[in-house]
Design a protein around this nucleic acid. Structure first.
Length: 654
RNA sequence: GCCCGAGUAGCUCAGUGGUAGAGCGGCUCUCUCGUAAAGAGCAGGUCGUGGGUUCAAUUCCCACCUUGGGCUCCA
């Protein structure tokens, strides 16, 4: 074969192809899976369609559905098919953007005459998409000039805005001055950078998930478009697994579990975003809070209490009324002034620091409060315990001299991680947010120094972290800590934030060794963040099966027959004497029924006692998630469970 | 706040233009049982709230409240 096109494969080998060969030709030449499954090619780092000619002497790799790049192409191409289906089913509809996203894709549409999609429409649209997939329509790329593009998209104003560069679309818009389009049929052409799969037949493992409103260009002052979300995968199996993961997540939804386990509720009469804690939920919360208090006490924190209301002057001083008035509950006009419910605890803590004269000898001063705050979250943003209008922060404010900053943050990181680990979280992600040059207060030197201190503290612990450039609040850089839960979801929980603003606003000073007044740096540190939200995360993490040390009821003792109830009660007395939360379930129902009920309540240990146990001071132990053990002496069980509780074991000991 | 859904017994849900039903749960009685559902009976609902249409509304329409999924926002 006479070759004059040479390409280099990822393994370094060369391949000689006919002139003007494409990625598809290369795939065919390689044969096998490459010929059947390659989606696109990457030539010298640039993604190209399989039917695009390969540059000579380029490094080429083929992309398959099982790679991140490949699945993204699949999702992106599926989004195109969605647009094609909608445009053909809804005459007069226009479309804006349709990128691949985590697990899938979406496309935004504007339907004529304020039409909207409903769930039934999704089924219709999905079958239309399957029809398009069945036709194996090729994605044909063209480069067009602006005049041609204007003509092609004359009826699609959102596309014209993208062409004008007014709207950003990562998937289309002119790149390097070249406008590209992809045409599937005479009727459907989209503005797009590509690349795409060779034809629609490569697609198919997708499902339309839901409709949603979405503002054009993400701007709530603009047109609300109709968004359709879908999920797409490279195989039927992966699609199925994804849908199962969603089911699993739905099963452990904290709102559902909270109702099933009778932990808390959101009574309508209370108003949106406000919860009441029932005894069992409150018991868990109290254990969490007690443990938090204990750790803070050991950690050198001083406890403070502050009221829920404050005169408006406080929030003028703190600046909250300037910056966050929209998120605060409205003013209460009183005869001696205007009052607001507090949205944060920090202004009050600043009052405590500012009371009297502080010496450098008192620093770092660590103030801690389980402080309940109220924020007016917009109705559409409320979400169970995760986004709520009244919540309690495990809030501490640390006032440090700038030379103490590094050591303080270093030990703070230890403290935070140690407490999070006690609750069973092991997998952390750290984000360091740096100054937004557009929006900050304080001088550059202190920003630099503090940012370095945060970075250095992370380095000292050998922790990996991502830098989020320009993501800090206006008042100082911060470290955010995310945890991964049992089913791999990430939750942002703790935060360590420097604040150069409040010490200034409250004119906080301490007298240094030199006799001069100095400005302390303030650190905001939330560990759980919000107790409510942390509780919700824990509930989902453990799927309601809290570790024994957190369980509201740790042991239920069941007599086999009613005449064993007295012995069961004596076992409970012994357990309680050892601080084990336990109760007798009297033999009104058959044993199996009582066990089942206890299992559904996710009780860590169910003890069954019958004739043999009464005779021998033993019990049958039925641990959550384990198998039944008979003839365990009460003493050894107490030893075992108290050890488990004291060690805060996060999985039941079996 | 905006878009699309939902709201019927404590919970999960069925149902209808002629003022309601199941399962689980609760209570009572019977059963006394060795590791995930014994049996019977009873109680329990202004069908989210307020308007409207209609001879008649839980059902149709409107508004509001609460709630789910998104968008926006999140100190």
């Amino acid at each position: 074969m006479i070759s004059d096109l040479v390409i280099i494969l990822p393994d370094g080998s060369e391949r000689h192809l006919a002139p003007k060969s494409t990625g598809a030709d290369l795939a065919a030449d390689i044969g096998g899976r490459a010929a059947r499954e390659a989606l696109i090619a990457v030539a010298d780092g640039i993604q190209i369609d399989l039917n695009t000619a390969l540059p000579n002497n380029s490094q080429v790799s083929l992309i398959f559905p099982n790679s991140d790049e490949g699945i993204e192409v699949l999702r992106h191409s599926t989004a195109h098919v969605l647009a094609q289906a909608v445009l053909s089913l809804y005459p007069g509809a226009t479309f804006s953007i349709g990128p691949p996203i985590q697990d899938g894709f979406y496309y935004d549409f504007d339907l004529p005459g304020d039409q909207t999609f409903n769930d039934d429409d999704l089924a219709t649209i999905e079958s239309k998409m399957r029809e398009i997939v069945g036709r194996k329509q090729p994605f044909i790329r063209s480069e067009v000039d602006r005049a041609a593009a204007n003509e092609l998209f004359a009826n699609h104003p959102y596309k014209l805005e993208i062409l004008d560069g007014e709207a950003d679309d990562p998937m289309s818009g002119p790149e390097g001055g070249v406008i590209t389009t992809y045409r599937n049929t005479d009727d459907f052409v989209d503005l797009c950078r590509g690349p795409h799969v060779p034809d629609t037949g490569y697609l198919g493992h997708f499902k339309l998930m839901r409709v949603a409103g979405a503002y054009w260009r993400g701007d709530e002052k603009r047109q609300m478009l109709q968004r359709i979300y879908g999920t797409a995968w490279s195989s039927k199996k992966e699609l199925k697994q994804h849908l199962e993961r969603l089911e699993e997540a739905a099963k452990r939804d904290h709102r559902k579990l909270a109702t099933e386990l009778d932990l808390l509720s959101f009574p309508t009469e209370l108003g949106g975003g406000l919860a009441v804690w029932h005894p069992k939920g409150a018991a868990i919360r109290k254990i969490m809070e007690d443990y938090s208090r204990q750790r803070h006490e050991e950690g050198g924190y001083e406890f403070v209490y502050t009221p829920h209301l404050a005169n408006e002057r406080l929030f003028q001083t703190s600046g909250h009324l300037d910056f966050y008035a929209d998120g605060m509950y409205p003013a209460m006009e009183m005869d001696n002034g205007t009052y607001y419910p507090k949205p944060m605890n920090c202004p009050m803590h600043c009052l405590i620091f500012g009371h009297g004269q502080r010496s450098y000898k008192e620093l770092p001063l660590r103030l801690f409060e389980l402080g309940t705050v109220y924020r007016y979250e917009r109705s559409g943003t409320l979400h169970g315990l995760m986004r709520i209008r009244g919540f309690t922060q495990d809030d501490s404010h640390l006032y440090v001299a700038s030379e103490q900053l590094l050591d303080e943050i270093t030990s703070l990181l230890d403290f935070v991680l140690s407490v999070l680990r006690a609750f069973g979280f092991e997998d952390f992600t750290f984000n360091l947010s740096t100054k937004d040059p557009e929006k900050y207060v304080g001088d550059d030197a202190i920003w630099d120094k503090s940012t370095e201190a945060l970075r250095e503290a992370l380095d000292r612990h050998g922790l990996e972290y991502a830098i989020k450039d320009a993501d800090a609040a206006f008042y100082g850089p911060k470290i955010d800590i995310d945890v991964k839960d049992a089913i791999g979801r990430s939750w942002q929980l703790s935060t360590i934030q420097c604040d150069f603003n409040l010490p200034e606003r409250f004119d906080l000073t301490y007298v240094g060794q030199d006799g001069e007044r100095h400005r302390p740096i303030m650190l905001h540190r939330a560990l759980f963040g919000s107790i409510e939200r942390f509780f919700g995360v824990l509930l989902e993490h453990y799927n309601g099966a809290f570790p024994t040390w957190l369980s509201p009821t740790q042991v239920q003792v069941l007599g086999v027959r009613a005449d064993h109830d007295d012995y069961a009660a004596s076992v409970v007395t012994q357990l309680k004497a050892n601080g084990v939360r336990s109760e007798v379930i009297e033999a009104d129902d058959p044993l199996g029924a009582r066990i089942r009920k206890g299992k559904l309540e996710k009780i860590p240990y169910i003890l069954v006692v019958g004739d043999d146990d009464v005779a021998n001071s033993t019990a049958g132990v039925n641990p959550r998630g384990g198998s039944v053990e008979r003839d365990i002496t009460i003493d050894s069980f107490i030893e075992r469970i108290t050890t488990e509780i004291n060690n805060k074991v996060t999985a039941p000991v079996t």
